[in-house]
């Protein structure tokens, strides 16, 4: 199956500087009862976006018109908790293509990559700097260049490298699908089964 390629992303950012945002906040469990991958975006951060009566919480960053764009800049250990891939589908469904933090929970990072959402890890101090910058100047344009593995804010002279596993990078750049890759290895898998005792 063909996936959307990820090469270069230029966008304004949405700041959400909270640590340990878990996948129950990203998409609460009561919205998981669907059997498709579509339609989760409208419930992204549901209980922060709306109050108990279902009214819009004007304070919350996704409801503030000055903050838009396809890059979410957040706090440490983003995506901890449940393995629900629905969290990634909610984030991409809302229109985000990259999340920037100084650390991600393991399962979330894997799920993100499998859906073409790029988790960008940058050092803590720079994350702090970037967050302050976009809060004060929401019009700031940030560039994420996957090929060069660089996140850049040109007018501020910020340019920071970020790590990506070379195999994952290749898959994202070319829009390759991991399942296709494994399906192509069928003979090797069958051979392994023959020598593998349970």
């Amino acid at each position: 199956m063909k996936r959307t390629k990820f090469t270069l992303l230029k966008s304004t950012c949405v700041p959400l500087p909270l640590a340990n945002i878990d996948t129950d906040q990203i998409i609460p469990a009561r919205f998981l009862s669907s059997t498709s991958r579509e339609g989760f975006g409208k419930n992204l951060f549901r209980d922060w976006r709306y109050d108990k009566k279902g009214n819009i919480n004007e304070e919350f960053v996704l409801n503030r018109s000055e903050y838009t764009g396809s890059i979410l800049v957040t706090g440490s250990n983003f995506g901890c908790g449940s393995s629900r891939e629905h969290a990634v589908w909610a984030i991409t469904g809302h229109g985000f293509r990259a999340v920037v933090s100084d650390s991600f929970a393991d399962i979330f990072a894997g799920n993100a990559l499998n859906n073409g959402l790029l988790p960008v890890v940058i050092p803590l101090e720079i994350l702090g700097e970037l967050t302050t910058l976009i809060i004060l100047k929401p019009e700031t344009i940030v560039t994420i260049d996957l090929g060069r593995q660089l996140i850049t804010v040109e007018e501020e002279g910020i340019s920071v490298p970020f790590p990506v596993n070379p195999f994952r990078k290749e898959c994202l750049l070319r829009g390759y699908d991991n399942i296709d890759y494994l399906l192509g290895m069928k003979d090797e898998i069958l051979a392994f089964e023959k020598r593998h005792s349970p």
Binding site: E85, V88, G110, N111, N114, N178, I179, L183, M185, I189
Partner: peptide, 14 residues
Amino acid sequence: IGTSEVEMVLATQC
């Protein structure tokens, strides 16, 4: 694991 990986395991056991 996530759902894409569930699909991977169903398809290839890997």
